[in-house]
Structures are given as C-alpha cells and as structure tokens.
Design a protein around this nucleic acid. Structure first.
Length: 204
DNA sequence: AGCACA
C-alpha cells in the first residue's frame, strides 16, 4: 500500500515516540528544508497519531525528492518510513479551492451511514433522492413559478416540466439532503387558491 | 499499525 499518488504532503511514520512534539517538528524541519519550502510540519502525540508526522511542501516535486532521498534515513535511531499523504493537507486544499469543512465532512459521513436501504414503495412513496416529483400543478404553470417557490431552499439545481404532461414537473437538488427539506415544506403547498401541489421523491 | 489539519 506504499504507492499513493504524489502529494504536497509526505506522511512519515516509524518515528521515535520518545521525542517531544516541538523538538520532533523542529528536527523534521531541519532535515527536510533542503528539499524546498516547507509550509507546515504537523505531528500530534495522540494515541492515533503518535510516531507519525506530516510535512507539507510548497511544491509536490519537493515532496517527491524528500521522500526518495530520506527514505530509511536514521532519525533518532530509527529509519524514517515515508509515503505521500493520502489526502491533501488543509492548507493545500484551501489553496486549490477544494477544501471541505471538516464538521461538514463528518456530517455527510453520518448521513451516509443512516439506515439506508429503504426502497421505492416500502411505504407507498419513492425512496428519498435528489429529485422531487411534483404533481397536481396548474396546467399553465411555468418553470419560473416553480423555481421561485423552490429557490428559497438551498441546493436547487433544475426545474423541468414534462412536455405533453400537464400538471407535473421534476425539481432537482444537488443532493438528497437538500431535497428533503424542500419536499417536507412544500408538499401540499397551495400553489393557487384551489390547488394543493403534491411533492414526492421521484421514482428512480 | 496507526493519515491530521491545535
């Protein structure tokens, strides 16, 4: 599992865990700075992270050279084990614009673990997904009208009327988590004084 | 062995 793809950051393990954090970081900085500008050296003596460190370089090429040159280098009596980090460091992803807030990340992970597995029809409704199925709409409703109604919810992506089928439409959100609040709030919404729009998840 | 973001 040694072949992760090149990264600005190298992941080092097999470090002596007897060295204090600040000294370790300083020493790592000293031996790696020759390969190029270092943005950060990070190590934590938590149970999970002891004996390991991350060194973030400004250039990926510096990380590559550092890894090649210092692989197995004796450091506090132990040979360094170096790999590319498996994910971008936050400083890097922020620079690239791909950074995702960590709280948000774990929230998504939780969501994914949610007792999924409900299938269409288990309770007479389609399983949750990012596309909503609208019915009982006025025949002459426009996409603009629907868009205005759904735009108050974040994540709206597309509104589609169905050619030759008056009274129904599909509304797509970026994901199921964003579609659900809109469905919940707008099911039975009185789109005209005498029409209640139905909002369900679309069947797959 | 263990991949974080203090």
């Amino acid at each position: 599992m040694a072949d992760i793809k090149p990264n600005h950051t190298i992941y080092i393990n097999n470090l002596s865990d007897r060295v204090k954090k600040d000294e370790l970081k300083k020493s790592l900085h000293m031996i790696f700075t020759q390969f190029g500008e270092i943005i950060a050296v990070m190590s934590f003596r938590t149970d999970k992270m002891r004996g390991q460190a991350h060194v973030v370089f400004k250039e990926v090429s510096s990380a590559s050279n550092a890894m090649r040159a210092m692989q197995g280098f004796p450091f506090y009596e132990k040979p360094l084990r170096i790999q590319y980090a498996k994910e971008d460091s936050d400083v890097i992803s922020k620079a690239k614009g791909t950074f995702v807030e960590r709280s948000q990340k774990s929230k998504n992970a939780m969501k994914r673990k949610r007792p999924a597995g409900r299938k269409d029809g288990d309770d007479g409704h389609a399983a949750p997904n990012k596309i909503l199925y609208l019915s009982n709409l006025p025949e002459d409703v426009s996409t603009d009208t629907i868009q205005v109604i759904f735009n108050q919810f974040p994540g709206l992506k597309d509104v589609r009327l169905v050619p030759n089928s008056a009274g129904i439409a599909f509304v797509e959100f970026e994901n199921e988590e964003l579609a659900e609040p809109a469905r919940e709030a707008l099911d039975n919404f009185k789109i005209t004084p005498d029409m209640q729009m139905k909002v369900d998840f679309a069947k797959k």
